[in-house]
């Protein structure tokens, strides 16, 4: 039996528009069933990367496979296994939610297997994405959040093995954002690999169990939110009062620092030790890359062979 190929695999992926190099060397493997967030500042190449993976763009160099096939040359059979949710859709405004899903679902009927019913029945799907009762609503009468839910429903119609979400909550108000996060989290039982792009770290941490940070054209950090927090935040700030006088210190070794502090005479009060937050670590990292500092992932203490997410098969 041949081993199942990983959901997504790229090696030395490059993308160049004219003289501008957007992607320099993106090498990453994503296993089946992972929920991964691709993070990075605006213009880092997140959308370019995801469009190459969706098969809408031909990379200038390197290798890329999604479900074992090269996206931009893969056929309709491959297309049926991949779900795509973009941020700018405002199509089919005159159509009604139910008829729209019914119509697009027809194309997936040929891909049903004895185990997997395709398409996903419209009524169930509408409930699932939280659009219950809106079956007859026209698409152009949906709110921004409802519209994105519908886009997710279309992405899920064929019960895809991989689902791409590009900036899924861009332009949402906080409530819509929270609702949408719940929807995405509720998808974890589907056994679908999800890759989402965002520039919002909180969102990435909330939804994904693995973060990829894209900056300066390559992946500069890769790991779970906790990994990143611990390994990237090398320094901690220590703050206390001794005999009423405030001391603050930034140190890489807070334990030794405190040991010394306690050894000295005086009463220590209001002790506070704080690790740099994930956000601070992320911003520092991106800043370093953008100002031309060392971009080798190893320098941030994240070595590829330490990655927890090379899951076998899963």
């Amino acid at each position: 039996m041949t081993p199942t190929p990983p959901a997504i695999q790229t090696r030395h992926l490059q993308m160049q528009y004219g003289a501008t190099r957007v992607l320099d060397d993106v090498t990453v493997t994503i296993g089946r069933g992972e929920v991964v967030a691709l993070l990075g500042p605006n213009g880092a190449g997140k959308t370019t990367t995801i469009e190459i993976l969706e098969g809408f763009r031909v990379p200038s160099g390197g290798e890329v496979t999604v479900l074992g096939e090269t996206p931009h040359t893969a056929g309709e059979h491959w297309r049926a296994r991949v779900g795509v949710v973009l941020q700018s859709w405002r199509d089919h405004g005159k159509w009604r939610v139910g008829e729209f899903l019914d119509y697009l679902g027809m194309y997936y009927a040929d891909y049903a297997t004895p185990d997997v019913q395709r398409p996903w029945p419209t009524t169930d799907l509408i409930e699932r994405v939280g659009l219950g009762g809106k079956t007859l609503r026209r698409l152009d009468r949906l709110s921004g959040g409802e519209r994105r839910r519908l886009d997710v429903a279309v992405g899920l119609l064929g019960r895809p093995e991989v689902l791409f979400l590009d900036e899924p909550t861009a332009g949402f108000d906080p409530q819509a954002r929270r609702d949408f996060h719940e929807l995405v989290r509720s998808l974890s039982d589907l056994d679908t690999t999800i890759l989402l792009t965002t520039h919002d770290l909180t969102e990435a941490e909330l939804l994904a169990n693995r973060l990829l940070v894209l900056a300066g054209g390559s992946i500069v950090a890769d790991g779970s939110p906790d990994d990143l927090r611990h390994r990237m935040s090398a320094t901690a700030s220590v703050r206390y009062r001794r005999d009423g006088q405030l001391h603050t210190e930034s140190t890489e070794d807070p334990v030794s620092h405190l040991r010394e502090a306690f050894a000295e005479p005086g009463v220590i009060q209001d002790l506070e030790v704080r690790r740099a937050s994930l956000e601070e670590a992320y911003l520092t990292l991106v800043h370093q890359v953008e100002t031309g500092a060392d971009t080798d992932p190893a320098s941030f203490g994240i070595l590829p062979d330490e990655l927890p997410d090379e899951r076998e098969g899963a």
Partner: peptide, 20 residues
């Protein structure tokens, strides 16, 4: 119009939908 509002791209994301 369909190119700008995403109708054609939508058809591209669904198998055989462009032909249909």
């Amino acid at each position: 119009t369909e190119r700008d509002d995403g109708t054609l791209l939508r058809a591209k994301t669904v198998p055989h939908a462009m032909t249909g």
